[in-house]
Design a protein around this nucleic acid. Structure first.
Lengths: 221, 221
DNA sequence: TTGTGCCTTACGGAATTCCGTAAGGTTTTG
DNA sequence: CAAAACCTTACGGAATTCCGTAAGGCACAA
């Protein structure tokens, strides 16, 4: 079994639960951090010390505070880590259950397991750790279909953000300004129009109002 | 207690429940119809026979089928009946819980009681029958405020229809055509604009998209 | 390296929505 | 009855959305 594990999770209580589960697996060398940046530094440091972590368990979303972060989300972190092909295994443990997102993490970023936080979350996490240790991948049942062939609809985080702002009453112009202010890209009015147009086609909506009504019904926002 | 009662309700199971409640009140002369038109005819006939109904319990919405109806809803029925001031008492028993609607039925059309279909619906209906028999009015607790002074927000059926069509993707122009085809008034583009503008102000929405998002969240459509 | 494809951005015109003003008709009120 | 209030409709202009076209940048592959 793994002997040295890092947990990156900003919620104390959850972090404690993960810690307990790890202990039950007889893993004693457990470290925890509350920022992805700290996780990155710790991992790098451990490699330099020639005593690297074997497994990282990380959340995706971290509440933001005053501290400016290089890795604002777990996704940024795992993307960077997996590019530097070390032997580090990564398990993402998050409430997010969009297939699109899970597929991206597994296929593109190459994480080793994805576990949804839910009632059975910790049980599944234990299972995931065992599976990953055997060099296999693990997916929570509710997102197991994520690796299915059909790349169903491509709804990105950006799309969701767009739809949310739209339903909040912002005009496309205002959304553009909003994105620019946050240094998010794309942010041009033209791009926003283009994306919304694509979404309208995808959802067979006849206009923006219809589109918002549809995605609200689907619970997408 | 009442001795002769008519129940107008198109859902079999509910109708059965009402029948049971009436029986418990020792009312034996109970007739049931599934169309408002039938209710009207039966009531008229009974008057001619000099053995009129004393109480009508009616739903508001009736599923439409091929048969063309003079009274498509319970509202049409009670409106007509109450205009012909007979001694007939009327209790409306419906899922509708919009205060505006209840107020209209009570104040303008002059029904004697309004009971909301809900978990306690039948209990309240029994209570309503007893109360109405004493020549008093009855209102389900959840809509009891309907008679309160403040004529809060005026959301009419027309508004709801407008919002529904809007969320279905019709443009204002198309809604206008839609209304004209159904001989509903108002139907001009100008009127539709005006109404939607009023709704936007009422709900503090910054545009039509926002408006639809808000009323969907409120469950109004 | 060059070509191909994809993405972001810009631009322009048509369609639609937004908003104020106003005329004509009906209902309410004094 | 007449004034006031309200409703429906029309119109015009500004703002926004909708939609096609096109240029420039970047990544991937031949």
């Amino acid at each position: 079994m793994f002997t040295k594990v890092l947990v990156s999770e900003d919620m104390d209580d959850i972090s404690k639960g993960v810690h307990a589960s790890l202990s039950e697996l007889r893993i004693t060398n457990i470290h925890q951090v509350q920022y992805c940046d700290d996780a990155y530094l710790k991992i790098k440091k451990a490699i330099l010390d020639e005593n690297p972590y074997q497994l990282l368990i990380t959340d995706l979303s971290f509440s933001t505070d005053h501290r400016e972060q290089r890795f604002p989300t777990g996704e940024h972190l795992v993307k960077t880590l997996k590019k530097q092909n070390s032997n580090l295994k990564i398990i993402v443990y998050s409430v997010e259950d969009r297939l699109q997102k899970v597929r991206l993490l597994m296929k593109t970023h190459g994480i080793d397991a994805y576990v949804c936080k839910s009632r059975r979350g910790l049980t599944e996490l234990t299972e995931a750790i065992r599976t990953v240790f055997k060099n296999e991948n693990y997916l929570s049942p509710q997102v197991a279909q994520a690796l299915g062939q059909k790349a169903d609809l491509e709804i990105t985080d950006f799309d969701i953000e767009l739809l949310k702002q739209l339903s909040n009453g912002l005009s496309q112009d205002e959304i553009s300004a909003y994105l620019k202010k946050r240094n998010m890209t794309p942010s041009s009015l033209s791009s926003i129009e283009k994306r919304l147009n694509k979404l309208r086609i995808q959802f067979k909506a006849s206009n923006a109002i219809h589109l918002v009504a549809i995605v609200k019904d689907l619970g997408l926002i």
